[in-house]
Design a binder for these strands. Sequence first.
RNA 1: GCGGGUGUAGCUCAGUCGGUUAGAGCGCCAGAUUGUGGCUCUGGAGGUCGUGGGUUCAAUCCCCAUCAUUCGCCCCA
Length: 413
Amino acid sequence: MASLQPVRGTHDLLPEENRVQDHIAETARAIGELYGYHRMTTPIFEFTDVFARTLGDTSDVVTKEMYTFEDRGGEKITLRPENTAGIARAYISNGMQQMSPVKVCYYGPMFRYERPQKGRQRQFHQIGVELLGVEQVAGDIEVIAYGAHILKSLGLWDNITLELNTLGDPESRAAYRNVLVDYFKGHFDKLSEDSRNRLDKNPLRILDSKDEGDRELVANAPLFAEYLNEHSQTFFKQLTDGLGDIGINYQLNPRLVRGLDYYCHTCFEFVTSTLGAQGTVMAGGRYDGLVSTMGGPQTAGVGWAAGVERLAMMVGTGPAAVRPVALIPMGDAAESRCRSLAQQLREAGIAVELGYAGNMKKRMKRADKANAKMAVIIGDDELAKGVAMVRDLDAGEQREVAIDSLIGVIGER
RNA sequence: GCGGGUGUAGCUCAGUCGGUUAGAGCGCCAGAUUGUGGCUCUGGAGGUCGUGGGUUCAAUCCCCAUCAUUCGCCCCA
């Protein structure tokens, strides 16, 4: 155990749990088709610059959470901590502005060098969506609707709240940021140590501080709403109206912010109280500045990402595995016959469990353990008559069926 | 990166106020039932008590370190 531990913060996904994650990923993909989003996949590593430049030099993700290494060619490589930068890079690399609007979703592993906790691992999985080239609020509404649809379809909606905020356009945001920094600088001596650091790196974050002293200051801090210009206000109004049109409830949270500079306007999180400290299950917003920051054309963007492990914890168990038919041969001749029969049934789309060895009792036990719905027993007697003994394992009843008509009989159940 | 808890069988956990062969339930294997599963009964396998060091006549138990995990902070999905 000591030496064969997986690397810290990584986990093996055994079949049962893997099935839950597959279910989540497939649900997201299938619902995406209804909205016109198609899955795309970018590499799980990129040149470090792809993340370092776009995520900002001061963000925690860049300063302490990236898995970075030099490859044999001396290139600086980073395992992706998130997928938006990779999609944006691919958008530029492949000249995808010609396909605008680009509507894609993704699923795959992400990597962050963090201290593991429940719902926080060093290798984890995200599903996500990106809509590129749409600056209208209709895009934000569609993307949120898609996310909510997934959560509803997974049966999680009752335990989830949509929190919503606006960061305004760059002009509004810069104006507010200045006012806010001035305000907190005036009370610097009362700020917590964390928040003093945030003053430089990410002053908006102070609004969401858990420190009591900070909260008192925040209560009297200038409000973002007063610094939103007309365009930003209109955009947000249209967003909330649009969500009303499609019947999605939300809760305004003025403290909801994003650290990264390229975010603007819409900012949202789907949160739950059922997962402890890691309550954010799906989060996103608008990032009109991202593609241009990377050197591409000015391109609007909006999207979200969701943690599959966190969703899986809420979903619990996945859909039941397919119940197979157990073929149980007795004797060499039957063994041979069952091999070909198994192949025939499988090619007809029927799941077959064909034991590898053992007497009938052992094989019946295995059939039961595989949750088989029926056992098809073929021995010398049956072979001679061209029949099989078909036993319904739920009812405990059995009858003879001609081998030639097995596919039809099994298909009925 | 910071602070607290935990680490005993595949899993969930007892236990030893420091003292001979460390236990249970579930699971696994076998038998009762040599062509019939689930239920029941009987038996069996499986443990460097996370790892390394220290204290002691003696450590799974006490101390230190380390690794993993967990809760919270930072931050985030």
